[in-house]
Amino acid sequence: NQASVVANQLIPINTALTLVMMRSEVVTPVGIPADDIPRLVSMQVNRAVPLGTTLMPDMVKGYP
């Protein structure tokens, strides 16, 4: 099973992602692959992302 990117904390709308905000976890449904975490750094979320939420491609501005 492939690990996905999961919010490690509440991420407010328009926040630029940092490594501490994300963790990898095997979840269903599958979200953004954990391998993409380095690419996500400094990209902004377009909505508030609660703790434990799987990051989906449509939540991150400019992804992929």
Rank of each mutant, 00 (worst) to 15 (best):
P33K: 08
D58M: 12
V6D: 00
K61H: 15
D58N: 12
T15L: 04
V60R: 01
M59R: 03
D58R: 09
V30G: 09
I13F: 12
I37E: 03
T15M: 11
G62V: 04
S24W: 09
P64L: 15
P33A: 12
V27C: 06
D58Q: 09
G52N: 13
Y63I: 04
D35K: 06
M56R: 07
Q44F: 15
V41P: 02
S24L: 07
R23S: 05
V20Y: 12
A3L: 11
T15H: 07
V20E: 05
S42Y: 13
V60C: 02
P29R: 04
T18P: 00
A3W: 13
D36H: 15
E25C: 06
T28D: 15
T28S: 10
N14M: 14
E25I: 06
V45T: 10
V60G: 01
T53L: 11
V26E: 15
V27F: 03
R47L: 07
L10G: 09
M22H: 00
Y63W: 14
R39E: 05
Q2P: 15
S42N: 07
G31V: 01
L51I: 14
A16F: 13
T53R: 13
S4I: 02
R47V: 12
R47D: 05
T28G: 07
T28W: 06
G31P: 00
I32D: 00
V60W: 02
V6R: 03
D36G: 06
D35H: 11
K61V: 13
M59I: 05
P12M: 07
V6W: 02
T53V: 14
P57M: 07
A16H: 13
M43Y: 14
N8P: 02
D58E: 12
P50G: 11
K61G: 06
V5K: 01
S4Q: 02
I37R: 08
M56G: 05
Q44H: 13
I37W: 03
T54Q: 03
G52L: 04
L51T: 13
M22W: 02
R23Q: 04
I13C: 09
S24P: 07
V45M: 06
I32A: 02
K61Y: 10
P12V: 05
E25S: 09
S42M: 15
S4Y: 03
N1Q: 13
T28L: 07
I32T: 00
N46D: 12
A34C: 06
P29I: 07
T53P: 00
V20G: 08
S24E: 08
G31H: 02
M59V: 06
L40A: 00
G62N: 15
P33S: 13
I11M: 04
V49E: 02
I11D: 00
S4W: 02
E25Q: 11
M59P: 01
N14W: 11
K61N: 11
P57N: 07
L51S: 12
M56H: 10
M21L: 06
N46E: 08
P57K: 08
T18E: 05
R39W: 07
G52R: 04
A48F: 12
L55M: 11
V27W: 02
S24H: 14
V30F: 13
T53N: 08
N46C: 14
L51A: 11
Q2G: 15
V26I: 14
M22I: 09
P38I: 07
V6S: 03
V30T: 11
M22R: 00
N1H: 08
L17N: 01
I13S: 10
G62F: 06
Q44Y: 14
V41R: 06
P50R: 09
Q2E: 15
M59A: 08
Q44P: 05
A48K: 07
L55A: 01
A16P: 09
L51D: 09
I11W: 00
I32L: 06
L10A: 12
E25N: 08
L19A: 06
S4G: 05
T54C: 04
T15G: 05
V5F: 02
D35N: 07
A16W: 14
S42K: 09
V20A: 09
A3K: 09
N8H: 13
G31E: 00
T15K: 06
R47C: 05
N8L: 09
Q2N: 12
P50H: 11
G31S: 02
T54M: 03
I37N: 01
P64E: 14
V49W: 02
M56L: 12
G52D: 10
A16R: 07
L10N: 11
P64I: 15
I37S: 04
E25W: 12
N14S: 08
P38A: 10
G62S: 11
G52M: 04
N8K: 09
I37G: 04
A3V: 06
D35A: 09
V30S: 12
M22E: 01
S42A: 14
G62W: 09
R23K: 07
N8A: 14
V30D: 15
R23I: 05
I13E: 11
N46Y: 15
M21Y: 07
Q9P: 01
Q2D: 15
L19Q: 06
N1A: 15
L19V: 06
G31D: 01
V49M: 05
Y63V: 05
V41N: 04
M56N: 06
L55D: 02
I37H: 02
Q44E: 08
Q2K: 06
T18F: 03
D35W: 07
R47I: 08
A7I: 05
A3D: 14
G52P: 00
Q9W: 08
K61Q: 13
T15R: 07
V5L: 03
V27S: 04
A48M: 14
V30C: 15
L19F: 10
L10F: 11
P29A: 04
N14Q: 08
A3C: 15
L51E: 11
Y63L: 06
I11S: 01
V5G: 00
V60K: 00
V26N: 12
Q44T: 15
L40E: 00
V26P: 07
V45G: 00
V30R: 05
N46W: 12
P50A: 13
V41Y: 07
T54S: 04
P12F: 07
L10H: 12
G52K: 04
P64D: 13
Q2I: 11
T28V: 11
P33F: 14
V20S: 14
L17E: 00
M21V: 03
K61F: 11
M56K: 09
N14P: 00
P33L: 10
G62T: 06
D35Y: 12
G52W: 04
M43V: 05
T53F: 14
T18D: 04
R47S: 07
I13Q: 09
P57R: 09
N1D: 15
A3P: 08
V60P: 02
N8Y: 04
L40C: 03
T28E: 15
P33R: 08
V49H: 01
S42P: 00
L51W: 14
V49N: 02
D36V: 10
I32E: 02
R47Q: 10
V26K: 06
P12Y: 07
G52F: 06
I37Y: 03
V27P: 01
V41S: 03
V20C: 13
P64V: 15
Q9E: 10
P64K: 15
V6P: 01
A7P: 02
S4A: 03
L19W: 14
P50L: 15
T18M: 11
L19H: 06
Q44N: 09
I11R: 00
M43C: 05
L51F: 13
T54R: 04
I37F: 03
T54K: 03
M56Q: 12
N8S: 13
T28Y: 09
P64S: 15
G31C: 03
P33E: 05
A7S: 14
D36A: 14
P12R: 07
V41I: 12
T15E: 07
Q9S: 08
T28N: 13
R23G: 04
Q44M: 14
V60Y: 02
L55F: 10
Q44S: 13
P29T: 06
P38Y: 12
S24R: 10
L17V: 03
L19N: 04
E25V: 11
I11P: 02
L17R: 00
P29K: 05
P29L: 06
N14K: 06
A16D: 04
L55G: 00
S24I: 13
N1R: 03
G62I: 05
P64H: 15
V6H: 02
R47P: 02
I11L: 09
E25M: 10
N14F: 07
N8R: 14
M56W: 05
T18Q: 07
M22V: 09
V49Q: 02
T53Q: 10
M21H: 06
G52V: 02
A34G: 10
T53S: 13
V41D: 03
D36L: 14
G62Q: 06
P33G: 06
D36K: 10
T18N: 04
G52Y: 05
R23N: 05
I32W: 03
A34Y: 07
S24K: 09
V27K: 07
N1M: 15
T28Q: 13
Y63S: 05
P57T: 07
A3T: 13
M59T: 05
V27I: 05
V27R: 09
I37V: 05
R23E: 03
I11E: 02
P33T: 12
V5P: 00
P57Q: 10
Q2C: 15
L17A: 00
V49F: 03
L51P: 12
